[in-house]
Simulated scan of single mutants.
Amino acid sequence: MTEFVLVAGAKLGAWAWDAVVPGLLAAGYGAHALTLSGLAEKRGAPAGQQTHVRDIVEEVERLGLRDVVLVGHSYSGIPVGQAAERIGDRLSRVVYVDASVPADGKSFLWGWPSDGVRAAIEANDGFWPSFSAEDLADQDLTDEQIARIVRDSTPHPGASLTEPAVVTRPLAELPSTYVKCLLDWPEPSDDVAELLKSDRWELVTMDTGHWPMFSQPHELARILHESVTSP
């Protein structure tokens, strides 16, 4: 049985997948939403990026999962991409949901204007502050969804955003699906566009914002299903 391991992006926990998991279970898959160290119910635990990679690998091993599809949203594409090569033949596919992808020796904050994020981390005792309603505006979210995300999000451990990735195998070699949310930005980033040249990568688009697990959970569950059933 295919087993999905779902990892939400910065400031979020396993709860972010609450509306996606039922669709996967109904389709006959295993679905395991994971909270990374330092977030949600694990708030307060010290965590760097490599801690988050270990969180994912150890969850797969703890549960004895095989035929694993690792799903990383936003920031979590970086630890998910690293974990993918470390779980070996347990891996079936990687799905990046509007996500960053790891580059060896580069951090999450590399390659985009990050001065504001770095300043916020420094001003908040090493944490990127939790979401405000303004952060979530114009992303196809209802007022109720925005209120829930603001209420339940937690500050994100800054070390995980500044610590460099460790990638030893080209990502292009791993079977992968990239889900691009068009409302957030209509084109994949340059590094993702390069990876999409690989015959092992495929691109899927969603006409929604950066948090599709809230705005279009049933459509996202369908896309995850098709990522493992399409030829």
Rank of each mutant, 00 (worst) to 15 (best):
T35N: 10
F214T: 07
G77H: 02
C181H: 00
L195V: 02
E219Q: 03
A33S: 11
A26R: 14
D89S: 11
L174V: 12
A159Y: 09
E58L: 14
L39N: 02
V101N: 09
G44E: 04
G116D: 06
L36I: 12
V57W: 14
S215V: 09
F4M: 12
L203C: 03
L34T: 06
V179T: 01
E61Y: 13
A40Y: 07
L183T: 12
R43F: 13
T51H: 08
H156K: 11
Y178V: 04
T154C: 12
R151E: 15
R66V: 06
S114G: 08
D135G: 01
P79C: 01
H225K: 06
S37P: 12
P113C: 11
D104A: 12
E163Q: 12
T154E: 10
A33W: 02
A14W: 03
K180N: 10
L36E: 13
V7Y: 05
A8R: 07
V192I: 08
R118E: 15
P46D: 02
A84L: 13
G30Y: 10
G116S: 06
V20W: 02
L34W: 05
R118T: 11
P155R: 03
R93D: 04
S114W: 04
R118H: 04
T162Y: 15
G88Q: 02
G38A: 15
E226I: 01
A14H: 10
F127N: 09
G209Y: 08
A165K: 04
E187T: 09
K106C: 09
S189H: 06
R62Q: 14
L141E: 03
F4N: 13
M1N: 05
W15I: 07
P155C: 05
I121R: 13
Y178T: 01
C181E: 03
E134L: 10
M1Q: 10
I146R: 11
A84K: 07
C181D: 03
V94T: 13
T208A: 02
E3S: 15
W15T: 07
K197M: 09
P188I: 02
E173R: 02
E61F: 08
L136K: 00
G209C: 06
T51Y: 10
L182P: 05
S37G: 09
V204I: 07
G209T: 00
S76Q: 04
A172P: 15
A133C: 09
T162D: 13
D55A: 08
H32D: 12
E163D: 13
G72Y: 02
G9S: 05
D135I: 00
S160C: 14
F108Y: 15
A8Q: 08
S198K: 05
P217A: 01
